[in-house]
């Protein structure tokens, strides 16, 4: 399984969702945000080196806080040297070696987001509960459909208590799961760690587990979480 975590807008929490979902699924998370990486790094080769042909995909995978991470460099020169077309063999090798892969996609709709979606077999779209979020999510879904990545679910991130997510699942035709606003998530992410490792009793850990199950179930266009209950 190669699961893309996408969302047209920046700052909605794609990286946070990707890291925590990968932890819940014991998957490898790949930071494909080539120009603005934000998953924890570390020393040694990174995705820029892999996409520039300077390192193999497997040697760039590291364990960070108990999660396998293929992080991305943070230099503009590294981004320019990357051939985004190499993302397909890279993700396929990582999947073959380690199993499930979660790809943290960049915002926007340029080639780096598109190639990740083209390689992924399913996509989870992250959005915030704002008026601008749904159109951006719809555009991302349109691109994902064009590229054969089925929409497995919508993650409504930083949702206020009691938010009804059914309008998100209706608008996007896929199950929607709310992840509540949480200080535990924010402080764990600041450390570059999944919240389940930092604060295993936080209520939000259950929400990420539900998100992980939903996205791992695969594309289920038209079915909502409440239909299942």
């Amino acid at each position: 399984m190669i699961l893309a975590v996408a969302g047209g807008k920046g700052g909605v929490g794609k990286s946070t969702v990707a890291l925590n979902v990968a932890d819940a699924l014991a998957a490898t998370v790949v930071d494909a945000d080539l120009a603005m990486a934000d998953l924890p790094g570390g020393r040694g080769p990174d995705l820029h080196d892999v996409l520039a042909g300077r390192a193999s995909a497997l040697e760039a995978v590291r364990s960070v806080a108990g999660v396998r991470v293929l992080s991305c460099g943070r230099t503009l020169a590294g981004a320019r040297a990357s051939d985004v077309r190499r993302l397909r063999p890279t993700l396929e090798v990582v999947e073959r070696e380690f199993g499930a892969v979660v790809v943290d996609c960049p915002a926007g709709m340029a080639a780096d987001a598109g190639v990740a979606l083209a390689v992924a077999d399913r996509v989870g779209i992250v959005c915030e509960p704002t008026a601008f979020a749904v159109p951006a999510a719809v555009r991302t879904r349109a691109l994902a459909r064009e590229l054969d990545a089925g929409l497995a679910g919508v993650v409504v991130n930083r949702a206020p208590d009691g938010l009804d997510v059914s309008r998100f699942s209706q608008a996007l035709g896929a199950p929607a799961v709310a992840v509540p606003e949480s200080d535990a998530v924010a402080s764990a992410q600041a450390q570059g760690r999944p919240v389940a490792r930092e604060d295993p009793d936080a209520p939000v850990v259950d929400a990420f587990a539900t998100v992980a199950r939903t996205l791992a179930d695969g594309a289920t266009d038209g079915r909502t979480r409440s239909d299942e209950a």
Binding site: M109, A110, A118
Partner: peptide, 15 residues
């Protein structure tokens, strides 16, 4: 889908 085609259609992400 063809990755080259995706790059051709969407354009470079590079700074």
């Amino acid at each position: 889908p063809d990755v080259d085609g995706v790059v051709r259609a969407l354009g470079s992400f590079a700074p």
